[in-house]
Amino acid sequence: MTEPDTLARPATPDSLITRSTGLEPLDKKPWYRPRHVVLQTGGGIGMVAAGVGYSLGKDKNELDILVGYVPTKYAGSSLTIATAKYTYSPFVLPVGERWQIRPLTVGGYLSYTHGTVNDEEKGQYAKGYYWFSTDTRVGPVLGSRLAYRRRTPAGQPRNVAFYYELGSNDLYILSYVQNRKALSVGDILTLSLGLKADF
């Protein structure tokens, strides 16, 4: 059986290349296709958070979209946390043939937590009763990354990286700013550990 549609449509040059070489051409991925997958623990965005990310501006800027999970045992209710994290890593230092270090990563995140015990129902509070959001957090991150350099047979980079990030959030920072004697920077820090793999 033949499909008339397939017959009627002329092959595009791209698909000709793909078919003839079996390789994806460099930089020809559609804009919406993520560049890497991410797996993270901690940082206030999940016991485990997984997602995908995009690279922008010569791979120095990255936008990761993650969904995290915290089980009831650790939070009193099971939390689902959606996070957007933007990071900038200005320096890329090669270490030998196989390794690469990004000594500085700075950025910020915005997270939304679903599933809290007291989930602010409509009409429960007068406007501005609690001036802060109990579910939306924003905060800075600062970290480093170590990557193992891999390439596809066609020479496209497929790095696998380990990273850590120290972070905080709006409510912790506010608590610190107003209690400079009692609280230290260490009191308001969180640590996250994660893996990023190109695909």
């Binding site: 939070a75 937590t113 969180t190």
Partner: peptide, 22 residues
């Protein structure tokens, strides 16, 4: 990863500011 999540005990690796783990 599982071994790393054990670090929650030191409270720096925080799963959520809303967590209850003590």
């Amino acid at each position: 990863m599982l071994a790393l999540t054990g670090l929650v005990g030191c409270s720096l690796v925080e799963y959520s500011p809303n967590q209850t783990h003590l």
